[in-house]
Nucleic acid binder design. Structure first.
Length: 437
DNA sequence: CGTAGACCTCAAAA
DNA sequence: ATTTTGAGGTCTA
């Protein structure tokens, strides 16, 4: 019954190397997407609208949910930037309204996934500039930086400090349920949008968040909400955006000249964010990259610091420890190496280092994988990894939400074998990093 | 100015 | 089964 309110699935031609939602939505950028247990459907509330996504090797499929009671076109409930709430003229034709919502949903998805930039071309540029990237990237294609709401990104990454992705997701969920507007209920599950800054300025917010398990971050969130809602102009966060990557519905403009430290607008945004409670350099860079569209922002967390030491010769001499100077040096190094979208490239290597995904790098020598070397037209040797579906699901073992449905790597040249959704049992202890290279 | 400790919680390791 | 560790940092002394 609940599906009666969903639109039909629409499709958009996208290859897995241009976008892999199974990786992009799980690599710690956004903490709100939910994968439905049954099929490979992902669901989230975006700008007041419940969106569902799924993907096959050639297309991204999307549909949106219209709450039965209210008007078909959901009114964006002022999640963050209530200013331009898309003042649609009141029309009575419901069919044209759903058409409008459908077009709008497509525009929303293109905006959210930054689909205007060619990821494949960026990957080959980064590969030509950096042997280490070239080595790691083939197993992690289709990883994009999302264009998230800036306020949501800010709060999410305040939650991320000294924390793990699983709990960050739980905390963000609690924020939405307790303080965000209810958008709809599907199959008994309530879908809320992310709360506005003013929704988190209540006197009891800190204590209540503590009660919900936020720990010391409760105060940061409350203080930051007060600062943004009461001590900044309306729409202040969006004024810090990269003009090339504007908020939904706005026209792009020039973003400034690139330098090793990043463009001027990025430096300004970073500095401004540091004034907020619970926002240090790393969180500020996360917000700049994923919430404000500054592609050169490189958040240096423990993972990236380890990568910098292991693969880029940091950790000695002047940059022995990760202090402020080293933090900047690491970012500058990657900006000089990868260029204006260094943060995008960083995200690929970061994901490769996540425990959830790192199996892909070592699994080739472990089990259940056919590796065959073939010549590509450009004369380079390329290792193709086919993950076979040796799932052995037989027993009663219930794989609880830890299953790892991998996309088959997009094949070119040869016929489109494309192992779709290869299932592996994913013995959790899978594989440690064996070699220090 | 740059550097140790404390800070909440929880699930995975030991 | 119970304790310890560590997880995408930041603030403060």
């Amino acid at each position: 019954m609940s599906t009666a309110c969903f639109s039909e699935w629409r499709k958009l031609p996208v290859s897995l190397s241009e976008l892999c939602i199974n990786t992009t939505l799980r690599c710690g950028q956004s903490f709100r997407w939910q994968k439905l247990p049954d099929d490979d459907e992902w669901r989230c509330v975006l700008r007041g609208r419940i969106i569902s996504l799924k993907q096959d090797p050639t297309h991204l499929y999307y549909r949106y949910y219209s709450p039965p009671s209210t008007a078909p076109l959901p009114t964006p409930p002022a999640s963050t930037s209530p200013s331009r709430a898309a003042s649609k003229s009141a029309n009575d034709d419901s069919e044209s309204q759903s058409e409008t919502a459908s077009d709008d949903t497509l525009a929303l998805i293109k905006h959210y996934f930054n689909l205007s930039s060619e990821l494949t071309r960026l990957y080959s540029e980064w590969s030509s500039l950096d042997p280490n990237f070239k080595k790691k990237a083939p197993q992690f294609t289709g990883i994009r930086i999302l264009r998230q709401d800036a306020w949501e990104a800010l709060v999410s990454f305040i939650c991320s400090s000294n924390n793990n992705i699983s709990r960050i997701s739980q905390m963000v969920e609690k924020l939405c349920i307790n303080y965000g507007p209810l958008i709809g209920t599907i199959g008994g599950r309530a879908y809320h949008d992310f709360p506005s800054p003013q929704a988190l300025t209540g006197k009891d917010v800190e204590s209540r968040l503590r009660g919900l398990g936020f720990g010391y971050r409760a105060k940061y969130i409350y203080n930051t909400a007060v600062m943004v809602a009461n001590e900044r102009e309306e729409g202040w966060l969006d004024t810090l955006r990269n003009p090339e990557s504007p908020a939904f519905g706005m026209e792009p403009a020039h973003g400034g000249e690139m330098r090793p430290e990043g463009r001027e607008g990025y430096r300004v945004a970073h500095e401004q964010l540091l004034a907020l409670q619970g926002v240090g350099p790393k969180v500020a860079d996360c917000v700049c990259l994923m919430g404000l569209g500054w592609g050169e922002a490189v958040p240096v967390d423990t993972h990236v610091w380890q990568i910098a030491q292991r693969d880029y010769k940091f950790g000695r001499g002047a940059h022995k420890t990760l202090n402020k100077a080293t933090y900047d040096a690491v970012g500058n190094h990657f900006r000089k190496l990868w260029g204006k979208e260094a943060g995008w490239a960083h995200s690929v290597l970061f994901t490769a280092d996540l425990k959830t995904f790192s199996e892909r790098l070592t699994t080739s020598k472990k089990v259940k994988v056919d590796v065959d070397v073939k010549k590509e037209e450009d004369g380079e040797e390329d290792v193709e990894i086919k993950t076979t579906v040796t799932t052995a699901v037989a027993s009663k073992r219930k794989i609880k939400e830890e299953e790892d449905i991998d996309e088959g790597e997009a094949k070119k040249g040869k016929d489109k074998v494309v192992v779709q959704a290869a299932e592996t049992t994913h013995t959790r202890r899978a594989s440690k990093r064996l070699r220090k290279q």
